[in-house]
Amino acid sequence: MGAYVAVAFGSIVFIAIVIILSLATINKGYSYKHTIDPHPDEEIEKKTKQN
């Protein structure tokens, strides 16, 4: 009976660690600052408007 309790406790701890690491990874991904290069056509339009 004690072995079942130990396995159940170990499983719960393992699942908790996996959930915590998953949440940390998701949080880090959402906090990343994504940048997008401007479209080449927009660059040409800006240059022609400035001249």
Rank of each mutant, 00 (worst) to 15 (best):
T48Q: 14
K33E: 09
K46I: 08
I26P: 02
V7N: 03
N51G: 11
S22F: 03
A6G: 08
I20E: 10
A8F: 07
I15S: 06
V13D: 10
I12Q: 14
I26T: 03
P38I: 10
Y30P: 02
Y32R: 09
V13Y: 08
N27Y: 15
S22K: 09
I19S: 02
A16C: 07
A6Q: 13
H34Q: 14
K46H: 06
P40Y: 02
E45T: 00
E42Y: 00
K46N: 04
T48I: 12
I36E: 14
Y32Q: 05
H39R: 00
V13N: 08
L21N: 09
K46L: 09
T25C: 07
I12D: 09
Y30A: 07
L21T: 12
N27D: 12
K46W: 02
V18I: 05
Q50N: 04
F14T: 07
N27V: 14
I36F: 13
V18D: 00
A6Y: 13
S11Q: 07
Y32P: 04
A16V: 10
F14G: 06
H34G: 09
A6F: 02
I44T: 01
F9K: 15
E43F: 10
K46D: 06
K49L: 13
I26N: 02
G10F: 01
A16E: 07
D37C: 06
Y32M: 08
N51A: 13
K46E: 05
E43Y: 06
S11D: 03
A3D: 15
E45Q: 03
T48F: 10
E45V: 01
K46C: 09
E42T: 01
P40M: 02
D37F: 11
A16S: 11
N51W: 11
Q50P: 02
Y4M: 13
V18E: 04
E42Q: 00
I20S: 12
A8E: 05
A6R: 11
G2F: 12
S31F: 07
V5H: 07
L23K: 11
G29I: 03
Y4N: 13
N51P: 02
S22Q: 08
V7M: 06
A6S: 04
A24T: 12
L21C: 03
L23W: 10
V7T: 07
K28V: 05
A16T: 10
Y30T: 06
G29Y: 01
I36H: 13
F14I: 05
K47R: 06
A24E: 10
T25A: 08
K33L: 08
V5A: 12
F9I: 13
T48V: 09
Y4G: 15
F9S: 14
A24R: 12
G10M: 02
A16N: 08
I26D: 00
H39P: 00
K47S: 01
N51D: 11
H34F: 14
P38D: 04
E42A: 02
E43S: 04
L21M: 04
T25H: 06
I12R: 15
T25V: 11
A24N: 10
K49I: 05
Q50D: 06
I36R: 15
H34W: 14
M1V: 10
A16R: 09
H39Q: 01
A24M: 15
I20N: 12
K33S: 11
A6M: 10
D41T: 07
A24F: 13
I36L: 12
T25P: 01
E43P: 01
Y30N: 08
A3M: 15
K49G: 03
